[in-house]
Simulated scan of single mutants.
Amino acid sequence: MKKKIAFITGATSGIGKATAEALAPHYNLILCGRREERLTELANTLDTDTYPLLFDVRELEKVEQCIHSLPEEWKAIDLLINNAGNAHGLDLIHQGSILDFDAMIDINVKGLLYVSRTIVPMMVERKTGHIINISSIAGKEVYPNGGVYCASKHAVTALSDGLRMELNPFNIKVSNVCPGAVDTEFSAVRFKGDMERASKVYEGYEPLYAKDIADIIAFMVLRPEHVNISDITILPKAQGSATIFNKK
């Protein structure tokens, strides 16, 4: 194993999968996800050494168990990409589902914390590393019917800023990535499998694609050691803000 090691959560689809593909020429990859078949398929298609880890970021004991069970040669993690996340529902807060609220907070915030709390001490000990947290334009703005999702992604942005300050003495970079509208499984999950409703989110304009974000992440991690792109927002050309789109 001569390459550095990257650890990617939510690697089985969307931005996580595209990021794994973009980083494969440069990193050996620890691929994390909840869907075993997809995880195995991805690991088998990448032209680099891979180590699949099957767990749900919401389950602290499982997170700790899987990460601590890594073979010694895989524990020197150079890059952590906290990508696992979701949106559930598009409701007014006072009418929303508590189960949806829990899912967004548990995955987007607590999951990121669980993984970071387990891996970051290893980076601190080695005094090197790079953490990239995937937030959202919703981590910069708030829109009606998405208040809890926006709150969870604002938390990701705040945690990125806090980590950057706290880890500065340990030579560890921290970056926050805020995509706008990206055509992935995001809307299908938000609308609980209603594909007709999900497809309308991207009608009338060309959204971003997972590869667009992955290419930018690859650019960020391949900068010289003294360079840290600490915060970046990426929108499709047709998007002016979280809720403003130039649709045909």
Score class of each variant (00 low, 15 high):
K3S: 05
K3C: 03
I5H: 12
A6V: 01
G14I: 10
I15E: 02
G16E: 04
K17N: 09
K17A: 15
T19H: 02
E21C: 13
A22R: 05
H26N: 13
L29Q: 11
I30L: 15
C32I: 07
R38I: 10
L42G: 12
A43H: 08
N44F: 07
T45Y: 07
T48E: 11
R58N: 08
E59K: 13
L60W: 02
Q65T: 05
Q65V: 00
S69L: 05
W74I: 14
W74G: 12
I77L: 13
A84H: 05
G89P: 05
H94L: 14
Q95R: 14
Q95S: 13
S97R: 08
L99Y: 11
M104F: 02
I105M: 10
V109S: 04
G111K: 09
Y114H: 15
M122R: 14
V124C: 07
V124F: 07
T128Y: 06
G129E: 04
I131Y: 05
S136W: 00
Y143S: 15
G146T: 06
G146A: 14
C150K: 04
S152K: 03
S152A: 10
H154G: 06
H154C: 09
A158M: 10
R164H: 03
L167C: 06
L167H: 05
N168F: 12
P169L: 15
N171W: 02
N171I: 03
N171L: 09
S175I: 01
N176K: 01
N176E: 01
N176Y: 00
V177F: 00
V177W: 00
V177Y: 00
C178L: 10
T184P: 03
T184G: 06
T184Y: 03
E196G: 15
E206P: 04
E206Y: 12
A210K: 03
D215H: 07
D215V: 05
F219I: 11
L222D: 01
P224T: 09
E225I: 13
N228G: 04
N228Q: 04
T233K: 07
L235Y: 06
L235H: 03
A238T: 02
A238Y: 00
F245V: 14
N246M: 14
N246G: 14
